[in-house]
């Protein structure tokens, strides 16, 4: 009831979102024009659009390249993170041994880690995905673990009385119980993996949104910088929105989403 209701509302909600963006864009355009703000301080949206239209290939290939890096890093982070969460919930000793190392790894600034990754993997797409992975696996691990530990012991006892094996317990009870928590992490990971991919590109590459950002900065090209920022925002928002949509479909029993 609630899930179908929420889903049927979705196109309308999306339409309102698009409308909101369009209105903000118009106000932006009007303000910059009316206040006569120089374009090297704050360009107008129409200038950004024409900048993109002038060299569409650079933006398109940059967008796709960053998208692929982000997705690979995200997928690896999600799979490893969920796997780690499951392992840690089953083997307490393993958790006690390895988990502190994970925490230490997360205190290393991503910049320092990025330099290391470039030395190991060179200026490859893999290097960027590894950095995206590095930023995502930890929150997914922690949230999976928290979700798995939130299983009602009475529910576990009930399934045990039905003769459930450890595998059945995991698949039928523990993972579904943890799913809302896992999705919280996946939404977070969708934005973090984009950050990882862009930061990775700063260490050296020729295509990607991060490269466009860097080039615009060095050339003091304010219009190009804003165009790259908006392209990144589009990628990030679309990915995040998609994750939220999948979450609604998969975790349909939660009323409060």
């Amino acid at each position: 009831m609630t899930s179908t209701h929420a889903l049927s509302d979705l196109p309308r909600a999306a339409l309102r979102g698009v409308l909101g963006v369009a209105i903000v864009g118009l106000i932006w355009e009007a303000l910059v024009w009316a206040l006569n703000v120089p374009s090297h301080t704050m360009p107008r949206p129409s200038q950004m659009a024409s900048a993109v239209a002038a060299t569409p290939d650079a933006y398109l290939s940059g967008f796709l390249r960053t998208l692929v890096e982000t997705l690979i890093g995200f997928a690896a982070g999600a799979i490893v993170g969920i796997g780690n969460g499951v392992l840690f919930s089953k083997f307490t000793r393993l958790r006690q041994m390895v988990f502190p190392l994970f925490v230490v790894s997360q205190t290393i600034p991503v910049i320092a880690f990025g330099a290391l990754v470039v030395l190991w993997f060179g200026n490859t797409m893999l290097a960027k995905s590894v950095i995206a992975f590095y930023l995502t696996f930890f929150p997914v691990t922690v949230n999976t673990l928290v979700g798995l530990q939130a299983v009602n012991p009475k529910q576990e006892a009930l399934l045990r009385s039905f003769g459930a094996s450890r595998w059945q317990m995991l698949i039928r009870l523990q993972l579904p119980t943890a799913l809302p928590q896992i999705f919280v992490a996946l939404r977070l990971a969708s934005t973090l993996s984009l950050v990882g991919a862009i930061v990775g590109e700063w260490f050296g590459d020729t295509t990607g949104l991060g490269v466009l950002l860097l080039q615009a900065m060095y050339n003091e090209n304010m219009v190009g910088l804003w165009a790259a920022i908006l392209a990144s925002a589009l990628l990030g928002t679309t990915f995040y929105g998609l994750m939220a949509l999948i979450e609604r479909t998969c975790v349909f029993w939660r009323n409060d989403l």
Binding site: K154, Q155, S161, G163, P176
Partner: peptide
């Protein structure tokens, strides 16, 4: 365990 079918106080439906 497994020879008794039991039902606790809460329904514990999934």
């Amino acid at each position: 365990l497994g020879n008794v079918s039991f039902m606790p106080q809460q329904d514990l439906l999934l």
